[in-house]
Write a protein that binds this DNA or RNA. Structure first.
Lengths: 362, 362
DNA sequence: CTGTTAGCGCTTTCAG
DNA sequence: CTGAAAGCGCTAACAG
């Protein structure tokens, strides 16, 4: 036990070898103590632990990660540029809250890669995973049909959850809502009310949720024996101006008597303004079905019905299962698809327009 | 150029050595290309880059971190258990937003260590830094006078910012508000209005902001030639019940004619209820000075004045400077101390009670 | 411009 | 129960 107390210098970053030398054991013994492995006498263990506590030793995570996969860090990354798909503040807070409860409160690190598109031109949002930075990850946003990164993530076998699915990879680990069905329900609702030409404000163009909206619309119109006019589908982005003019474009055609607001923007004011500019009165001239992420919520008080997309609820379910996969208590991939619900509730009390994560606070 | 295309197996995790072998160069050349260093012919660089892109190679962050300090990850940790100091949702969102703008949008990782107290009993919130996980960190909350971890962080020379200071380490890199002055201003305001015995709802007991409140109170009372009765200081936690009963305890003493709400809870309802239980009418029986984190805000409409603590503004300033330190464009430590402001604005429009990060959403 | 060698701090393997 | 040695994938230092 050659404890050379005299040569103990004030270190900031200790190594196992130094610890071992000071305590008078081998590095392997220190390693065993640090990792709580068996095969160390209690007195030795205590001696090592005391010294580690005293000098404030922390194992170097990089060195460790060269021999074993990291287990204590979950990554969160965004597969779409934030400028394309602004993050709903309420959604983000829920996700963050779940991540805290499931991972953070148990002492795990939660690592955000919020702009993987910064330096590389390619869709390299998987970098944190393949760099060995985290043990699994959450893809927090819709996937693009041209996405290839997701395939590599899937093949890696590491735990992951996409908050959105992909036609090209049906086995993708995902938690989402069936937007195709949402659109079919919306169309049917309006067809039942006697409408023949139904306009659609179609959000998420270029992403899977946009594809599903389109497919659901065409399928439902066909089943109803109505014209599947592509012009009835207007792509919209999240900007108010864009939403206004798209609404206007649809309603300027007087044969269009109904509107499905599948923009995902929950922006009643813009839809109203678009109606006004087209000389229409919502609820009288135009029958509207609005889409929302909140149950029993009214987005547009003049709407005849609202479709509730339980996206957040699906995400919560998926994250719960991801935690199990993470802990080795189940296998991947995860498949959560929640059905949308048609709510015919009415009321003056409209949901306030959503705030966006990085939009509102500066 | 021994490109053994034939032996190229579908890998998920490539190493530099494999890349080098496949392309027919040395590992050092691959390293140079990956890190954008000079000393590689353009054609070679392109050949390597093409291959890297093709196979989706990512350098192993652990291996890299053994030779050089990480530069692309900022850590956020909480030096106080979240149960002691619930996180103000508005504050969190501002911090997150700043972190995104300053670090995230530039392609850096933001790594949260939200419950470092999970497994270890010691205040080990510095673990991420000493494990080599991040290049610098933000300590997001008040510091305890018994804290020793902060000394090690300070000595490490790594960039860090504490959102709160510490008497025991005046040179600590920090961005905060002068609570001592806030208390002195509060007391003076009430003394000018003729009060001799002033009760204080004192938040953050056991943390530096609590100490500063106490010190400021005793100092101001002494300067005013009034009794420095310790009983006039009531420690409060963030629970409504606690706030109510503390208010009650103070005001049951009829000699106490004024109250400083330095709880930090921004909870008008509880203060009112405490007054009511003591048979007092705020603004008539009791003169009140309220503390708030929002400028020109009214917390309690019956209050004669409000003290604005620009904590969030100081944090924003500090984070801006941390980014410079991070990028080597300045040296540490950072010293931001914002003065509080007395606002005599009145109005019925009270600020809604704050939401807490992990309280509200589940 | 390019390559070789050593070694970062751990964990794994194998030997006592 | 304990230790010695090899090696993970990368970069720094030094040769060419």
């Amino acid at each position: 036990m050659a404890q050379s107390e005299s040569r103990r210098r004030p270190h900031l970053m200790w190594t196992m070898e130094e610890i071992a030398r000071e305590v008078g054991v081998s590095t392997k013994t220190v390693s065993r103590v640090v990792n709580g492995e068996a095969g160390v006498r209690d007195t030795t263990r205590m001696r090592v632990n005391r010294f580690i506590e005293e000098v404030g030793y922390h194992p170097h995570i990089g060195a460790r990660s060269m021999r074993s996969q990291p287990r204590d860090c979950i990554g969160v990354t965004i597969p779409a540029p934030i400028s394309d798909v602004p993050v709903h503040l309420g959604f983000f807070l829920r996700i963050f809250s779940h991540l805290y409860r499931i991972f953070g409160s148990r002492g795990r690190f939660i690592c955000f890669d919020l702009n993987p598109f910064h330096s590389s031109s390619s869709m390299d949002y998987s970098r944190g995973l393949f760099e060995g930075r985290y043990a699994g990850c959450v893809l927090c946003g819709p996937l693009s049909p041209t996405d290839t990164t997701i395939f590599r993530i899937h093949e890696s076998g590491l735990p992951y959850l996409a908050l959105g699915r992909l036609d090209g990879l049906p086995e993708c680990s995902s938690a989402t809502v069936d937007y195709e069905v949402a659109m079919q329900i919306s169309v049917n609702c309006l067809v039942e009310r006697g409408h023949k030409r139904i306009g659609v404000l179609k959000g998420f163009h270029g992403y899977q949720p946009g594809l599903e909206r389109r497919r659901g619309f065409l399928k439902a119109m066909q089943l109803a024996g109505l014209a599947e006019d592509e012009h009835l589908l207007q792509n919209v982005t999240f900007g108010a101006q864009n939403l206004i003019s798209a609404t206007h474009r649809l309603l300027i055609d007087s044969s269009v008597t109904a509107l499905i607001d599948a923009s995902g923007a929950e922006d009643a004011a813009s839809v109203r303004e678009g109606c006004r500019r087209a000389g229409r009165v919502p609820g009288k001239d135009v029958d509207i079905v609005g889409w929302t992420y909140s149950d029993n919520a009214v987005i547009l008080s003049e709407a005849c019905a609202h479709i509730w997309l339980p996206v957040w609820e699906a995400a919560a379910d998926g994250l719960e299962q991801l935690a199990l996969w993470f802990d080795g208590e189940r296998e991947g991939p995860i498949h959560v698809v929640y059905p949308p619900t048609l709510n015919r509730i009415a009321g003056e009390q409209e949901l306030p327009p959503p705030r966006r994560l990085f939009d509102v606070l500066e």
